[in-house]
Each structure stands twice: as C-alpha cells, then as structure tokens.
Nucleic acid binder design. Structure first.
Lengths: 261, 261
DNA sequence: GCCTATGGTTCATTATTTGAACCTCAGCTT
DNA sequence: AAGCTGAGGTTCAAATAATGAACCATAGGC
C-alpha cells in the first residue's frame, strides 16, 4: 500500500476510536511501526489533520477536515438537498429515517430524523453501517457493480444478532430481491427487534452514493407497513437524486468570493 | 517534503480553488509531475478525500473530510462553545464579528455573525486571513512564540491596499503593541474602508488557537469605539477559552456509542 | 487528416520510507 | 534510592516505494 494510503488509513482509524489515543496504541491499531506511526502523525499534524494534546500527548482528529468539509459542503450541499426529503419521510412514516453516505469504502450515517413518538429506533449520526447486516448496506450493494459486491462479501461478515445473515450465498439472494424490488429489508440484521427498509440514492451514472432508510420496532411493523416504508424510501431517494444531480450537472464556477478584513 | 505532506498539500490546493480542476492543472498548481499528481489523486480518491466527476474527469474535495469533521465536532465542539460568545458580541457591538481558527498553517474564518443593520462588513466563512494584513492575523501572531513570528514575516507579504503594512519591522511594532494591549487593530490592512480589532483565543498553554475579530466600516468608527471593540473581543476570546478548556481538561472517554440498524 | 491539448500509463532510476535498536523520562516497585 | 517498566520519541543503514520522461489514447479545433 502506498504511504499516502497508510497515512489516510491511520487517520481513518483515529476517527473510528471514541477516545484520544497515544502513539503506541495507534501504531498497534494500524499495524505500523511506532516510528512510522509517529512520522505519519507529525506529517498529518503539520497539515492540521491530527492534533496532539500538549498534556496527555495523545492524538485526535484535527481541524483541517472541518475546513475541507465546510468547503465541500458549500459547493456540494448534499445534506441541504437531502434533509427535507428525510424530514418529510420521517413525518409520513412516523418512524426513524436515516440517510447514509458512502465514503472511504464505508457507509456512514450522515443524518437522522426522529419521528415525534416515544417508542422509536435510535440511530446515531456518524455510525458505520455494515453492508451485509443493514438495510442501507444491502440497498447500497444491490445496485453496485458485481466486482464490489464480490469484494464486500469476501470480507469476514460479523454476526450481530441471531438473525444476521452471514452466508454470502444467502446475501446474494437478498441483493437480487433488493435489486428487483428497488428497496432492501433488514430483519433484525444489526440489532434484535429492529426492522428496516432502505433505498439507494444514485448518481446519474447509476452508482449508489448513499441510502435512505426507515427503521422501525419489529413489534409494531407489519409486512404491509415495511413494503410501504420501502416504497417511500425509494421515492425519497429518487427525489434527492433528482434534486441534487438534476438540472445543474456542472457544479464548478462558484459564486464570487467576497472577503473583507 | 514527505509524500504525505505533498499529498495533503495537493488536497489543500484543491480546497483553495473555487472550481473543479483537471489533472494537468492540479499538477501544475502543485508543482508536481502529472503522473505523481495522478497517483496522489487516485490514492486520495480511494479514501474519499477527493472525487472525480465521471463526465468532466475533473477533481473536487470528497466526502471523507465531512465524515472526519463530524466526528471531530462531535468530540470537540469548538463552534458550539464559541458561537454564543460571537453572537453576543455582534449584538453588543452592532458590527460584524467573526471567529477564525488556526489550521494547516493558516488562519481561516470559521464563523461569522452579522449585526442587524444594512451597512456592515461582509466576511465569508472559509476565507483565509493573512497574518500581516488582518486584525486576526496580528492578534494571532502577537501571542505566538518568536520563531513563528519570524517564519511568518520571512514570507513575501502582499500589499492588499495602500494602507497594508508590509515592512517586517513595522509589523513587529504592531505586534508589540498588540501583545501589550491584548488586542490588535487592522486599519484597512486587507480592504480599504474597513477597520478591525481582534483578540486571540488561547489554549491553556498560552498558544493561540484562533481569534475573535470585530470588523466595522472606517467611516463610522471612532478611536474610542475601536478600543471598546478590542476590549469586547478580549472578553469574548477569554470567555470561549475558559468555557472550552475550562473544567473538563480530559476530553476522552466519550459517551456511550449507540447504534441501531 | 493533421495538430494540439487533455487524461492516463509505464518502468528504470532515484529518493523516501522503514523499523530494530536506541534514548529519555515519569511513575511504580522493591 | 536503585531498579524496573512502559510510555513517547529518535536514529540510520537497509528495503522499498515514489518519481518523471516518454509514452499511449482520445477528443476537439482547424
């Protein structure tokens, strides 16, 4: 793997931890030599991608990604386009609706709308959605080129609940169903007692870029209801795709850049 | 320079452009060979830091920084702490107040509050503040270790207006005044007709991490008013610093990570 | 049909990365 | 207090990955 790739993986690993870590830990977690890890961290720090706490000497994600994210969002406001659709769907379905985005080889939750009722599914922004065990993951994979499906199913598949499907053959079956139906269903794949339906948001070339998913308590959700959620998820996902990629295909040529002291 | 550094510089360059660019352009802008630039872009793309438009083949910032930024902000919500202070100051001063953060060797605007009046200074979130020509830059430098001041003043200093001070000796004078007074003043340093006062937000070790600045039209701003803005900026900056770094110095050990399908 | 400019690729050369061993320091044990 | 342990951090010869001139492919302009 290239040096750049290794450094970015380190950054990724660091982002995945829920606390700050020291040099030795991060080296171990990334399977890197301590000296190498240190050089990476120093280099990343120079550019603001990591920060070292001056007291504890531990490392954390720096502020450069925040700057880049602001720039990207300013030019490419996916959430601004997508959120209204998610909100509408959360109201219509009266269940939790979440939006995920494919980034860095993973599907991560980028927005969640809770319905106004006490008993609902909790999803955290930032959480990673395993491809084989979530409705979003299945919906995403189902519309990917075969090579990527193969790659995803070659990896070890964790069994999160008694119901998690981990047999690649069975998963391929689910993907075929999903592709035919337009939306996926995850029956307690990641968490017991939760059922979800998801549909992919697709770029104009057909490649999925993320998913819209409705997650509901299994106990109150009928087959009819799930099918309905799926259809609604498809509508929302297509709506986002059309509005986002729709008219203005060329996104360059930004507005004027004003700047004052 | 290390490969990682070069790749991150490429990313930085890409972020600084206000439109998408092709391979040849980005190679030229980064003084890299086309083949090298391409390898960097491919590697960065693998990790989601850049994206290539499938039609135009041009490159833009990807979604990975957005993910990292969310994680950082979740753990380290600088803006959530700082914004109330900026808002209060914008109301109290009835002028534009902006907050900057040091990242990747530069000071960039991360939040702006406009006062509720028509004639006001416009500052854009994301804009870069030159150290020698802005109140924020001067306030930041004035509280930096001498080595960093030297480094900043060794670089070529652009003359943005007739009033921009570009003589390193004179700038050192301004920095001394700033350090003594606690806040800096920029008299039309970046833009004619604009005067600003700024104070640094400092980490517990004394190092500045960003600045609070008040920017006002020169025409309606008296010496007394600017001194008052300066004092208010100091109060806001200290308030942010205390609230942010104050009680809970150890930031690790995040709350529980909930995750549902 | 030719010219030019673009994105993209190759592979011998070259420079950078690598990691075992090392140093230093702080806290703990005896 | 001496010795131990494990942390962060550093060194430099050996190993490896980055480099870029030259290349191909394609698209648009003339």
């Amino acid at each position: 793997m290239s040096t750049i790739g290794k450094a970015l993986s380190l950054l990724d690993t660091l982002s995945r931890l829920d606390k700050e870590v020291g040099l030795t830990d991060i080296a171990r977690l990334c399977s890197l030599d301590k000296a190498t890890a240190r050089r990476f961290l120093v280099e990343l720090e120079k550019h603001g991608f990591v920060e070292q706490d001056p007291d504890s000497r531990r490392y954390r994600i720096g502020s450069a990604p925040v700057r880049l994210a602001r720039i990207r969002e300013a030019r490419y406001p996916f959430l601004r386009v997508a959120v209204p659709f998610i909100k509408t769907l959360a109201e219509a379905s009266a269940e939790t609706v979440h939006l995920s985005e494919f980034s860095g080889g993973r599907l991560s939750t980028i927005h969640v709308e809770d319905p106004p009722r006490a008993h609902r599914i909790i999803v955290d922004v930032g959480s990673i959605l395993p491809f084989h065990a979530t409705a979003s993951g299945l919906a995403f994979l189902a519309f990917c080129p075969p090579a990527e499906i193969d790659a995803a199913l070659r990896k070890p598949l964790e069994k999160f609940t008694d119901h998690t499907v981990v047999d690649p053959k069975l998963i391929r079956g689910l993907l075929d169903e999903t592709a035919a139906r337009g939306f996926s269903i995850s029956h307690q794949g990641l968490e017991a007692g939760v059922i979800s339906a998801a549909a992919p948001v697709r770029a104009p070339d057909g490649r999925p870029v993320g998913c819209v998913a409705v997650a509901a308590p299994l106990s109150r959700t009928t087959k009819t209801a799930i099918d309905h959620f799926g259809a609604q998820a498809i509508a929302a996902a297509n709506g986002i795709s059309e509005k986002y990629y729709g008219s203005e295909r060329l996104m360059g040529t930004s507005p004027e850049t004003r700047r004052r002291d």
